[in-house]
Amino acid sequence: MSSKGTVLKPGTPAPHFELKLSRDKKISLKDYIGRKVILVFYPADFSPVCSDQLALYNELLPEFRRYNAEVVAISVDSVWSHKAFAKDRKISFPLLSDFEPKGAVSKLYGVYKEQSGYSERALFIIDEEGIIQWSYVSPTNVNPGADGILKTLEELESKKK
């Protein structure tokens, strides 16, 4: 099953997932119903670009929460790698492990790179009802920043009014 060219687009219901946060704790997309989710797929723990990217999102959590949005990040790394990475970089949002079967959730969202075995560097904003409102795939070595996320959150907020 290849995921090429099938990155999920706005308007699509976000596929359900439940992934490990730690050895004995799982997190499901359903846990976030009623809140927006900024879903961040990234290639690997400890690679220089994503470190900056996730550090930036960590710094912006108060801003995101003003829009009732939480950050959830996913890579194919194991829970042990995530644990070490989160501790080292003081990341306070969940890093989920798309480890077994490898890349299954990344594939559902159309952001798994079969050739390299990593997830793309991709962003999704899922609204309170579980519908994808924005998606963006960045070149793997480019940190996409946060202006696209904030712009989308603002637009969603102004639509409500």
Binding site: D52, Q53, L56, E59, L60, E63, N143, P144, G145, A146, D147, L150
Partner: peptide, 12 residues
């Protein structure tokens, strides 16, 4: 300052 950077696409 920080937020003006974020809004300008500063990522690091």
């Amino acid at each position: 300052d920080f937020m003006s950077g974020v809004r300008s696409g500063v990522n690091g």
